[in-house]
Amino acid sequence: MAERLSPEARAEALAELTGWTALQDRDAITRTFTFRNFQEAFAWMTRIALVAEKMDHHPEWMNVYKTVTVTLSTHDAGGLTALDVRLAKEMDRIFGV
């Protein structure tokens, strides 16, 4: 099982990620991705779904038209882990950050 990041490791990870912020009410990070249209948003989600499945680590996300809001936290660990950071970096890479 993955272990929760220390406060120092969490701060370091957030400094490396573009556009991600810590949630105030739980040990998780969030980001909103905006696309040109629904088709691009859904295509990105499909690509991420394949990555997440290979990692066996699945995001919480919501899609409304061209906007996808993602929250990452490892439920088994009860908070943010290296898996979340890795998935966030993959999301950014595929988004083109």
Rank of each mutant, 00 (worst) to 15 (best):
P7T: 01
W20M: 01
T71L: 04
F33P: 01
H58L: 12
E53C: 12
K54I: 03
L5K: 02
D25V: 05
P7E: 01
A28K: 13
Q39H: 14
R31W: 01
H75C: 06
S73I: 10
A2P: 08
L83V: 07
L83E: 04
T30G: 07
K66W: 06
S73K: 14
A15W: 02
A41V: 02
K66G: 01
R4P: 03
V85N: 05
E16D: 13
T81P: 01
E60S: 15
A82H: 13
R36S: 12
S73T: 15
A52T: 06
F42E: 04
D84L: 09
R47L: 13
R26Y: 13
A41R: 04
D56V: 13
D92W: 00
A28S: 10
H58W: 14
A77W: 11
W20Q: 01
E90H: 12
V85C: 10
H58I: 12
L23T: 10
W44M: 08
V85P: 02
T32N: 05
D27R: 09
R47E: 15
T67P: 05
E16F: 08
D76P: 02
I94G: 00
A41D: 07
T21A: 12
V70D: 00
H57L: 13
H58S: 11
E3A: 10
A28Q: 07
E40P: 02
A52W: 11
M55W: 04
H57V: 13
M55Y: 08
G19S: 01
F35C: 04
E12A: 15
L5C: 09
E53D: 15
A28L: 11
T74W: 03
R36H: 11
T71M: 04
T32G: 07
S6D: 03
T18Y: 10
V64H: 10
L23P: 09
K89S: 12
A43R: 15
V51L: 11
T46D: 14
I29S: 04
L50E: 15
V70T: 03
Y65W: 14
W61S: 06
H58N: 11
S73H: 15
E16K: 15
I48Q: 11
A28G: 08
P7Y: 06
I48H: 14
K54M: 10
T67D: 13
G96E: 10
R31G: 01
L72V: 10
T71S: 06
M1S: 07
R93N: 05
T21Q: 13
R10P: 00
R93V: 02
S6I: 09
A82F: 11
A41F: 01
G79D: 10
A88N: 08
A88L: 07
D27G: 11
M62F: 15
F95V: 00
L80S: 09
A11W: 06
G96N: 08
R4W: 08
M45E: 08
L17G: 06
K54Y: 10
K66P: 02
N63E: 09
Q39A: 15
R47A: 14
H57F: 04
L72Y: 12
W20S: 00
W61V: 03
T32V: 05
